[in-house]
Nucleic acid binder design. Structure first.
Lengths: 210, 210
DNA sequence: CCGGAACTACACTGCACGGTGTAGTGTAGG
DNA sequence: CCTACACTACACCGTGCAGTGTAGTTCCGG
């Protein structure tokens, strides 16, 4: 006897369209300033359908956060494998730069990550208690694992991998995001130097000493 | 013939109370979810008075951002002078830790800085074009100056002081904020170790080598 | 051909909130 | 005592928006 009125389930194209439209609007205008009517219009769908699928606006937000989070994690995992799987000491710096560049650009806009945080924090903060721990920390955890492996392999000297991952992220994406508030990292030529320097600082601190 | 209806000026206690109440509510609930009625109630003031002073809600937000920004800059400048004015090589690490700790705790709650950014960005982003450049960058610039001085003095080796400042901030406050999303740094015992490690990374990368 | 599910179009409710107008109260200064 | 001003209390308007109810259309499987 769930009190729900049987929301529509499954991965239909309409559902995806709604989530996509909602994501775009939430990201650009914020949760509060986005009306469900606008989402429906953008998705090319009747407002009623939105409610048939999601029940209410907050649930829709959760769906967006969920979707973005998952795809983000997937992107990071894949990029991690593709850029940092087999490196030697000589290629480490380039590999780390490549990794951060790819992540920066692959995330559709760019501050997608930070924006997601904002969305799930500021907006649904008091509203929904989504178990965001996994989504929030998965990227850091994945990177931490990799740092641990690199330490094992003698390329790095990271005693606290999780902290190291947080610091790496802060030094690269954190600085870039802070500097170029609105910009989308995909094209901005100012991004790369920031990432390069961030990686250098990280390596000066954590590269395995002789 | 200004179109304004002569807002109330000057630093009256009521005005301060309104700004304070608005700050607290904007910070905890967000701009959109905070009603002017709530602000007035919290300030112990009639709603009409709020409008007599500020004209509209966005102007009130600007006043809040302004006030917080100024006091933040003041705090940072002062702390900078008190902790990093006269240091030698031996005391550098401790001084940097002291600086970041003091800044973390002195900022009333803690993520005040990030929250301010959010407020002025997400919320008034499309609404008001406040010339936030000074407020936003003053802390970084101030820290950059200090790093330049320390480089001059031979304690550090920071070729791009502004970038170094951004990195320092990311490594310390950035990491702390990211980890302890909601917490207020003032008391949380997890903050200090993060700051200490951030400073160490920074110094390993930037301490003047022999 | 029938029934049901997915959808749309649209009207409609209820409410919260930004903003205003105004009458009235307290208070300080001349 | 009178005026001016800061302020309150309160009623009020307009609007935007979440959410619902419903009638009608299309389409598909049996």
């Amino acid at each position: 006897m769930a009190s729900a009125k049987t929301l529509r389930e499954g991965a239909t194209p309409k559902r995806a369209a709604i989530v996509t439209a909602a994501r775009e609007l939430f990201f650009s205008d914020g949760f509060d300033r986005t009306s469900v009517d606008a989402v429906a219009a953008r998705a090319g769908v009747s407002k009623r359908t939105v409610y048939d699928y999601f029940g209410d606006k907050v649930t829709l937000l959760n769906a967006v956060v969920d979707t973005v989070g998952q795809s983000m994690v997937a992107t990071i995992r894949r990029t991690l494998d593709e850029t940092l799987a087999e490196v030697d000491a000589a290629g480490l710096e380039d590999a780390l730069v490549a990794f951060s560049m790819r992540v920066s650009t692959d995330m559709l806009g760019s501050p997608e990550y930070a924006t997601l945080q904002r969305l799930a924090q500021t907006d649904s903060g008091h509203l929904a208690k989504l178990d965001r721990y996994e989504i929030d920390n998965a990227p850091e955890e994945a990177l931490a694992e990799r740092f641990a492996a690199l330490t094992e392999a003698g390329l790095l000297d990271v005693t606290d991998p999780r902290l190291g991952a947080d610091q790496f992220i802060a030094l690269t994406f954190g600085v870039a995001l802070n500097r170029l508030r609105s910009a989308n990292a995909a094209e901005d030529p100012r991004v790369r130097p920031i990432l390069v320097e961030g990686v250098r600082v990280f390596l000066r601190a954590y590269r395995s000493g002789p």
